[in-house]
Design a protein around this nucleic acid. Structure first.
Lengths: 110, 110
DNA sequence: CGGGATCCTATTGGATACTG
DNA sequence: CAGTATCCAATAGGATCCCG
């Protein structure tokens, strides 16, 4: 039994799933895997996400140490988001997940 | 945009996450990756899961083609669960996920 | 033995309005 | 620009009882 963040996990893989489970998290991570983005740029990339959801998902990713939020003390406000080393370490796995997903779809169509 | 099972996915990786997201799914998959189990054997392996949840998760895994349910026409009933080729194809990824989870924990403790 | 049916709670996500 | 705050709907999960 693994205790982490008020949850009990039976398997360490569930921890990673907890980190990336959330309606917009993998999408955010995949965007940030390419480059740094500002808040409103991410909004444009994900028109379906409300402000509340985008902010929530970013905050969780930040608290879990996958994403870094850099605030510039300027007016108007400027905030940049980019992957931490920990977030970067998940990128190959996310790509694998993506390939498996494509394979799965092909398989299900035949 | 990928349409699959009444959901719209922006990234193929979300499909795999949908398949294995569920409180007991990765645990079921990890047990079945080693050997075939009967229903009540799985119950004993996962004391925290209620009958309803165990059945639900197994049915979803079956409907998604990851697990095969084999019913023997005997009395008392006998039902066996084991991984399909599709389910087996996810095992290496699940192991990777497990390693990443362990790494993450170590990192967070320091 | 291997479930199904019902009822209830908790968590997640959405819509909308407001702000330093 | 980059968020908060509030209220509400949908889904996931849990407790309990029943059945061929």
């Amino acid at each position: 039994m693994i205790k982490f963040k008020k949850y009990d996990y039976q398997c360490a893989s569930e921890i990673i799933l907890g980190l990336i489970s959330g309606k917009w998290k993998v999408l955010i991570l995949s965007h940030l895997s390419n480059q740094t983005f500002r808040y409103n740029e991410l909004q444009k990339l994900m028109p379906g996400a409300t402000q509340k959801m985008l902010t929530m998902q970013l905050r969780e990713l930040e608290n879990d140490g996958l994403v870094i939020r850099k605030v510039y003390a300027v007016a108007p406000p400027k905030v940049e988001y980019f992957l931490s080393p920990l977030g970067l370490s998940l990128v190959p796995m996310l790509n694998t997940l993506c390939e498996l997903g494509s394979d799965y779809l092909k398989n299900k169509q035949t």
